[in-house]
């Protein structure tokens, strides 16, 4: 039976309590990051929901894998073989260059660029709203993922790890409005900061002086400042520049090189291990 009169506290007092709770949570979490240590626990609590949500996608993928014809597989194999041949040829030249570079760097007494351990992760889910651009990947704390670990695809930098659960983790894309990455122009080493725009195909470059030497088509690579992303990985290409003298800075936009709208496999760079290796080597010297 439905009671005719509402039982319990009035609507207004309920709303009051809820709003006070929500706003204090927002302040505590948004401004002071109080939930950061508990996020792994919170994430493992809601893991069942996430797991059920990932089932239909996995099922579709598996069934589409079942119905691939032999001809398709052979064609794909052909493409992959030719790609491997081209890459091997490139890596032959690359090895010589790397050695030469190391020799030159040691002549100049500059530290060697460390080699990173890489882990391959697969995409689980995408959360793409203008408010937040994140993807979920299938590697988590158990696979040695750590906070702010750099994430790449085969073209360039994708983002960094923002949230870790035991078996999966969340990647904040470089185009998220809350994300910024220090970059430099490959052509002339001008340092800039690329902010996310909330749009998967655009980065906003902030605080560019009108006189700065920036041209359309310039390649932006990570500068290694900020110590999250290692130096020298491609980030984007400058796509348009508006030099409006009435504004304090020039408006510069860039297109990310990583294909953020069609992510499938991602590379996680183990910068922590490489850095501790380097520190040990410096200690022993």
């Amino acid at each position: 039976m439905k009671p005719i009169f509402n039982i319990g506290p009035s609507l207004e007092s309920r709303l009051f309590v809820a709003v006070i709770c929500a706003v204090s949570l927002l302040i505590a979490d948004g401004l002071y990051q109080f939930s950061k240590p508990m996020r792994v626990t919170l994430n493992s609590l809601v893991y069942p929901i996430k797991f059920i949500a990932s089932l239909p996608g996995e099922f579709l993928e598996e069934s589409s894998d079942l119905f691939v014809t032999q001809a398709d597989l052979l064609a794909e194999r052909e493409i992959l073989i030719s790609e491997i041949m081209q890459l091997r040829e490139k890596s032959q030249r690359f090895e010589i260059l790397e050695e030469e570079n190391a020799q030159l760097r040691s002549l100049m007494d500059a530290p060697l660029a460390p080699e990173f351990q890489k882990t391959i992760a697969e995409l689980l889910a995408v959360d793409n709203s203008p408010y937040s651009q994140q993807v979920l990947i299938n590697k988590g704390a158990l696979d040695g993922v750590f906070l702010s670990q750099p994430v790449l695809d085969d073209q360039g930098i994708v983002g960094q790890i923002s949230d870790i659960a035991p078996t999966d983790s969340r990647v904040l894309l470089i185009t998220d409005i809350a994300h910024a990455i220090p970059v430099r122009i490959l052509r002339n080493n001008v340092s800039l900061i690329a902010n996310g725009s909330g749009n998967t195909n655009r980065l906003n470059i902030k605080y560019v002086a009108h006189s700065a030497d920036v041209e359309i088509g310039d390649l932006l690579v990570s500068s290694g400042l900020g110590e999250v992303f290692p130096a020298g990985y491609p980030v984007g290409i400058v796509s348009d520049i508006v030099r409006d003298e009435s504004k304090p800075f020039a408006q510069v936009n860039a297109t990310p090189l990583a294909r953020l709208d069609r992510i499938r496999y991602l590379l996680l760079l183990d910068t922590q291990a490489a850095l501790s290796d380097q520190a040990q080597r410096l200690d022993s010297q």
């Binding site: 709003v19 927002l26 948004g30 939930s35 919170l42």
Partner: peptide
């Protein structure tokens, strides 16, 4: 709150929006 955790938002964001709409 559950949605905030699931989507990785700042805690309380959807909680606030849902409580106001619910009122």
């Amino acid at each position: 709150l559950v949605l905030d955790v699931l989507l990785g938002y700042t805690l309380g964001m959807h909680a606030l929006a849902f409580s106001l709409v619910m009122y």
